[in-house]
């Protein structure tokens, strides 16, 4: 048996990526730390957003040039949208501005936990897919909503682990596993709530394809080091998934051979 992992990319609408970490560009202490952390993560996809321009503040050109200098795939989001119309308009602006048909579709259904609005999400997804977008919907871990999104043509789903920015990890592993098992052909990316590398490892171990992160890296005391830690955690989880986890047991089973007697009584 070879212990060499062969080429093992994750696929987003036909684009193959070697890194299973997608990273956000928000909340870093400084633009330079953002750039260093993103590079340290090894991510090939970076998320970004849109806001009203203030010409007196250079119109966001500094940020735009910094992002472009990274040379990564861009994944614009529709953060802050509450209605289908808002999200569709924001997606169209993003496509024109960033020259990509990828859109991380976010529709807030509740301001307390920023839970996605599943009904509006499905409606907006239908409109955008018909308009040629490649939709990456930020959804809850509801299996039936996942089914609707897949039926509409989504090749990627991005269920939450827990609410955005909470760092609580995977609150409902059973639900995520159900989505994994029901849609083995879909690229699953856990988006939001991943607070530490072990959360990411856990997700990858269960067959989740990738992780989208922001706060856990950006709010670390050392974002660059944390980005590296997440990259390692994700790699470990993926390797473990490919290697095949042992079956859990309810009773103990000795790992040391018990033939005849304890080893100190055995004679070589």
């Amino acid at each position: 048996m070879s212990n060499k992992k062969c080429d093992d990319p994750v696929t987003i609408y036909g684009t193959q990526l070697q890194s299973r970490l997608l990273i956000g560009s928000a909340l870093y202490p400084s633009p330079q730390i953002m750039k260093n952390a993103i590079q340290a993560s090894g991510a090939q996809v970076v998320t970004l957003s849109l806001s009203r321009q203030n010409p007196q503040a250079n119109g966001g050109q500094d940020f735009w040039q910094l992002i472009q200098s990274l040379g990564l795939h861009l994944l614009p989001n529709t953060a802050g949208c509450h209605t289908v119309n808002e999200a569709v308009n924001m997606a169209k602006m993003s496509r024109e501005l960033f020259q990509t048909d990828w859109i991380k579709l976010e529709l807030v259904g509740d301001d307390y936990n920023l839970q996605p609005d599943p009904i509006a999400l499905v409606k907006a997804t239908e409109i955008l897919i018909k308009d040629g977008f490649k939709v990456l919907p930020y959804c809850t871990d509801d299996l039936v909503i996942a089914r609707h999104l897949v039926d509409l043509g989504c090749e990627v789903l991005m269920p939450w682990g827990s609410p955005i920015g909470t760092g609580k990890g995977l609150l409902n592993p059973y639900a995520l596993q159900s989505i994994r098992d029901r849609f083995p052909e879909i690229t699953l990316i856990v988006d939001s709530g991943v607070g530490k590398p072990s959360h990411a490892t856990q997700a990858l171990e269960m067959g989740i394809d990738a992780i989208l992160l922001n706060t856990a890296v950006a709010h670390a005391n050392n974002p660059v080091l944390m980005a590296q830690a997440f990259a390692k955690g994700i790699e470990a989880g993926r390797d473990a998934y490919l290697a095949g986890l042992m079956t859990e047991r309810s009773t103990a089973s000795p790992s040391t051979p018990t033939i005849d007697s304890p080893f100190w009584h055995q004679h070589s």
């Binding site: 956000g24 560009s25 953002m34 970004l48 957003s49 806001s51 735009w64 922001n214």
Partner: peptide, 10 residues
């Protein structure tokens, strides 16, 4: 009119 440009996002 709303003039919109890139900002940081997660």
């Amino acid at each position: 009119l709303e003039v919109i440009s890139a900002i940081q996002g997660g």
